[in-house]
């Protein structure tokens, strides 16, 4: 599903990713763990195509196609989704407008028919209910005045509505209490399936108690320094990142 080869990237002239190699097959959930400043969020933004994140070398093949030259909206249409660590507030844009514009843009790009207001609502309502979101959230400005937990749930709602093939979740657990984390994890787990891959970026092991990954990769100093099974996350929880060799 996703194959990253020798990926190097710069932010503001400084190289942050020094050559990432990573493969996430369809149907699998991989975790990327690492201390602050290791390049985790940079990897998410590079994959989603944020301006200012300059790829200097390497490839990111998504379903066999290098997506690094595509516009962010083209990547979304191809089935990539980034759940933001800090979801952006859009004052004056209702959640309903936002979700509907996104869904219909993606459907159009995929050659599917656009949904009308009724079809859209029908689809969104069920998902909101399962995420424990009140329906009046659709009328509110996107993320405006939302609590940390509401913002993260809103990210999962967008993901569930857009049905991506590859979801990158950037520190979706940060700022969440245990109850909120369980709801978010349930939402993520509901989307696990043979046709979908996920990359879960996190600082702490606790999210991985709820979203159990198939593989765990440790990102330090802009490189993957170790990969292993779910037990690697527990080892890091006990010993800390200091037990690993810093990347040269």
């Amino acid at each position: 599903m996703l194959e990253i080869k020798g990926l190097k990237a710069k932010v503001e002239g400084k190289e942050i990713l020094h050559g990432i190699d990573l493969a996430v097959p369809a149907g699998e959930v991989h975790a990327i763990m690492g201390p602050n400043g290791s390049g985790k969020s940079t990897l998410g933004y590079v994959l989603a195509g944020r301006e200012g994140y300059e790829v200097t070398d390497g490839q990111a093949l998504f379903k066999g196609r290098d997506i690094l030259a595509l516009e962010p909206e083209e990547r979304a249409a191809a089935g990539l989704f980034l759940a933001f660590q800090y979801p952006v507030e859009l004052p004056g844009v209702t959640n309903a407008t936002f979700l509907k514009s996104a869904l219909n843009a993606v459907r159009k790009a995929r050659g599917e028919g656009e949904l009308d207001a009724m079809q859209f609502l029908k689809r969104v309502r069920g998902i909101m209910k399962s995420l424990g979101m009140a329906e009046d959230m659709l009328k509110r400005g996107v993320n405006v005045g939302f609590s940390g937990g509401e913002k993260k749930r809103n990210e999962i709602l967008q993901m569930a509505v857009l049905e991506p093939r590859l979801a990158v979740l950037d520190e979706t657990d940060s700022g969440l209490d245990i109850d909120a984390m369980r709801i978010v994890a349930d939402g993520v787990n509901a989307l696990r399936g043979p046709g979908r891959a996920m990359l879960v970026i996190t600082h702490y092991q606790r999210l991985l108690d709820y979203i159990v990954p198939d593989r765990v990769h440790v990102l330090m100093g802009g490189r993957i320094v170790r990969s292993g099974g779910p037990e690697l996350a527990r080892e890091l929880e006990q010993k800390g990142y200091g037990s690993l060799p810093a990347a040269a």
């Binding site: 909206e73 989704f81 933001f84 952006v88 859009l90 004056g92 514009s101 869904l103 993606v106």
Partner: peptide
């Protein structure tokens, strides 16, 4: 820029994303 990228990362084409943000700006 962050708002534009957020919209585009959800699949909304750049032009439409700008239009949505301009409408929102005038909204209040």
């Amino acid at each position: 820029e962050a708002q534009l990228f957020y919209l585009r990362s959800r699949g909304v084409p750049a032009e439409e994303a700008r239009a949505i943000l301009v409408q929102a700006f005038f909204g209040d």
